[in-house]
């Protein structure tokens, strides 16, 4: 298990770097991160299954100005890892799937707190950089930036390690406490979660024509899906 955690910390730190400090190539999106964690812990498909729903849940929260949205990367690290560990050869049951998505909320909020703290420390780094430049050392700009990047990467590695560890622990020690009957009933909440994700997309893509386009497409695709399901 140790090499897997080391790999999770390494890839997690790269994804966290992509989130704010470097590039913003969307490697930090839940679909990518949960699939990666799923692959590391033995089931890419289970990770991707949970990542596809997690992907849209927080998308309406924009990282504009000084506001920091919930850490959906951290939620994906937790949920992707737990999904891979909890899944059997036939995949992840609906109840466990729903429970893991809902349990990912504290990790998204913890990640946001950590992000806020890193940015405060970066303020101190920026201040020291400005002081060094005042003294005539403008290489301090490069050192300051490197320090900021290192802080983002280290925080990402620590969070990934902690969240993937929590994922393994919850999948092994908590999920089985939901009996099969409970899991079946918990699965009743499952259809609500993708709809929450769809509402996030709807609310951040509002134009004059969005409402008509969104619900018309939903009706057509819903009709087609039902038709294909019922016609076998």
């Amino acid at each position: 298990m140790a090499p897997r955690f080391a790999l999770a910390a390494l890839l997690g730190s790269l994804c966290y770097l992509d989130r704010t400090g470097a590039c913003q190539l969307m490697l930090h999106r839940p679909l990518v991160v949960a699939s990666l964690m799923g692959a590391i812990f033995g089931n890419l498909a289970a990770g991707a299954q949970i990542g596809a729903v997690l992907e849209l849940l927080y998308i309406a929260r924009l990282p504009v100005g000084a506001s920091i949205p919930p850490d959906d990367t951290g939620a994906a690290v937790f949920a992707g890892t737990a999904a891979a560990v909890a899944s059997s050869s036939i995949g992840l049951d609906g109840g466990s799937f729903t429970a893991l998505l809902l349990l990912s909320v504290p990790f998204a909020e913890l990640g946001r707190i950590a992000d806020r703290y890193v940015r405060k420390v970066n303020g101190r780094i920026a201040h020291l950089t400005a002081e060094a430049v005042d003294r005539g050392d403008f290489r301090a700009v490069e050192h300051g930036l490197l320090a900021g990047l290192t802080l983002f990467a280290l925080t990402g590695a620590v969070l990934s390690l902690a969240f993937s560890g929590a994922g393994v622990a919850i999948a092994k020690h908590l999920l089985y406490r939901f009996g099969p009957a409970s899991r079946l009933e918990f699965a009743a909440l499952q259809p609500v979660l993708p709809l929450l994700g769809a509402a996030s997309v709807y609310s951040c893509s509002r134009t004059e024509r969005t409402s008509a386009v969104f619900f018309l497409t939903m009706a057509v695709v819903f009709g087609a899906t039902v038709f294909f399901r019922w016609s076998g």
Partner: peptide, 17 residues
């Protein structure tokens, strides 16, 4: 945004269906 609305609607339709 319109393309996102189409895709978001399709996503909701598939999952609801």
């Amino acid at each position: 945004k319109l393309a996102a609305a189409v895709l978001g609607g399709a996503y909701a339709g598939v999952y609801a269906g």
